[in-house]
């Protein structure tokens, strides 16, 4: 009875998949939510068993992505509600958290969330000082002082006001 059910189009929606994070924890997700991620959809089309191991996404990030996918798979919610959920979702999150989210959504190909997160990161970056961006992106400045001066000279227009100005 189970085997016939699994192939029926009506029950297909209710099927679940288990997603394991790189920390080893497992999350039960409805298939309708999982397939909103293009990568997960591809994996599910290719393999039989319902366990997916994501070796590069941690617990905390995965839980957030799954909350997003489940909300967007809920047919009972209007598009307006989903849009306001998206705004809530990224607001107040630390830059560091957003970095893991943008990477996870890029890997999982959740285009819409990736867009929202990347946009939020850009909004935060606006008008920030060079040192802030270097710190948050963990960038080592490997320019020689002469090289840096040369770049500043070549594109002086890009630094003529507060934006990314040195402190």
């Amino acid at each position: 009875m189970v085997t016939t059910d699994e192939k029926g189009p009506l029950t297909a929606k209710k099927k679940s998949v288990i997603i394991r994070s790189c920390d080893g924890d497992e999350f039960l997700v409805s298939e309708s939510a999982a397939v909103l991620s293009t990568s997960l959809k591809k994996i599910l089309e290719e393999k039989e068993d319902r366990l997916i191991h994501l070796s590069d996404i941690d617990n905390k990030t995965l839980a957030m992505v799954i909350a997003y996918l489940s909300t967007h798979a809920d047919d009972g919610l209007s598009d307006d509600l989903k849009r306001s959920f998206d705004q809530e979702f990224v607001s107040g999150k630390e830059f560091d958290v957003l970095k893991y989210l943008v990477l996870a959504t890029d890997t999982l190909q959740v285009t819409c969330l990736c867009y929202t997160v990347a946009k939020k990161m850009a909004d935060i970056m606006k008008n920030k000082l060079v040192e802030w961006v270097r710190r948050e992106f963990d960038i080592q400045n490997d320019y020689t002082p002469e090289a840096e001066a040369e770049i500043r000279r070549l594109d002086a227009w890009a630094w003529d006001d507060r934006q990314l100005e040195d402190d």
Partner: peptide
């Protein structure tokens, strides 16, 4: 403008 300004980072 802001995007070009990131060329100073590294």
């Amino acid at each position: 403008k802001s995007s070009v300004a990131t060329s100073i980072l590294s």
